[in-house]
Design a protein around this nucleic acid. Structure first.
Lengths: 139, 139
DNA sequence: GTAGTCCTTGACGTCGGCGTCAAGGCAAGG
DNA sequence: CCTTGCCTTGACGCCGACGTCAAGGACTAC
C-alpha cells in the first residue's frame, strides 16, 4: 500500500509517516515510480508507535518497541529494552503525578484562603494573616 | 535598583525580565542613561510572577495577579480574576492528573504482563494471550 | 587612557512533532 | 489533451519562555 492509505488506516497523516522515516523509525521500500510502499508489517509497527505516542511516549522512546517487532518478536514489548522504557516511564509518571498532586494541594489551599479573605473583607472584620509557602520550581 | 540586581534578588535572569517587559507584564521606568530602574514594588510583582510560574502557571495566567497587586490590593489573589485563574488551574490539574493516573495504570499493566510473558517464555510453557487495550490519545 | 563591569537593542537558536505551503512528477478516466 | 488525485522533495511556520550571541554605550576604578 502507499503512504496515504497507511496513514489513514493508522489514523495519522502522511506528514507524520515521512517524519518517522526521516528519524529512521519507519523506513519505506520504494516502487519503481519512487512512491513509498508499505505492507501489513509496517502497519503493525506504525500502530505500535501510535499507541505509545498516545500514551505520551516520546518518539525516541518507541524505538526499542519497533526494533523489537522488526526483530521478529510477537510483541513490541517482548524485549528487555522495551521493558526498561516501560519502567523509566512509570518512574517518570510517578514523579510527575507526585509533583502535580503537590501543586494541586498548594493551589487549592491558596484558593480556599483567598476566598475566605475575600468573604471576610465584606462583613467588616479585620483580615487574618496567612503566609504563602513556596519551595521552588515544579517543572 | 537596576535589572541585574532585581533579577538576582528574584532568582531569575535579566533576559526573563526583558521578556516580561516585552509582554507588558512588568514595565520598567528608565534612568537618564537609559537603564531600566525598578523599586521594591516591582520586586513584589516579580516574586508573584515567579511563584506562579514555579507552580506551572503560564505567563499570561499571572497577569491578573500582577494587575491585582498593581491596583493596590494587599495580595495578588485578592481579586476575582485571580480566583478564576486558580479555579481554572485546579480543573486543569485535576484533568491532567486523572489522565496521567489512567496512563500510569495502563503502562503498569503492560509492564506486568510483558514481564510475566518474558518469564513464562523461559520455563517452556505455552504463552497466555492478553489483548492490548487502547482508547485514543492522552495529551 | 583603559580595563572591567554593567547596561542597551536586535536577532537568531532551542525543543518536539509535526502542519502547511510550493513546485512539480505520475497514473487513470473522460 | 486535460483534469483530478495521489505522490515526491524542500523548506518555512508553530508554540512558550526564554538562552545566547553580537555590537556597542555607560560608568567606575585605577
Amino acid at each position: 500500500m502507499r503512504i496515504g492509505e497507511l496513514a489513514e488506516r493508522a489514523g495519522t497523516t502522511t506528514r507524520a509517516l515521512r517524519y518517522y522515516e526521516s528519524r529512521g523509525l519507519l523506513p519505506a521500500r520504494r516502487a519503481v515510480n519512487g512512491y513509498r510502499t508499505y505492507d501489513e508489517d509496517d502497519l503493525r509497527l506504525l500502530q505500535q508507535i501510535r499507541t505509545l505516542r498516545d500514551f505520551g511516549f516520546e518518539l525516541e522512546e518507541t524505538r526499542p518497541f519497533v526494533d523489537c517487532l522488526r526483530a521478529g518478536h510477537p510483541a513490541g514489548d517482548s524485549c528487555p529494552a522495551s521493558l526498561d522504557v516501560y519502567r523509566r516511564k512509570l518512574a517518570e509518571l510517578d514523579a510527575l503525578i507526585g509533583q502535580l498532586d503537590a501543586v494541586r494541594t498548594q493551589v487549592g489551599a491558596q484558593l480556599a484562603r483567598a476566598e475566605l479573605e475575600a468573604g471576610a473583607a465584606l462583613p467588616g472584620g479585620p483580615e487574618p494573616r496567612c503566609e504563602l509557602t513556596h519551595n521552588g520550581p515544579t517543572d
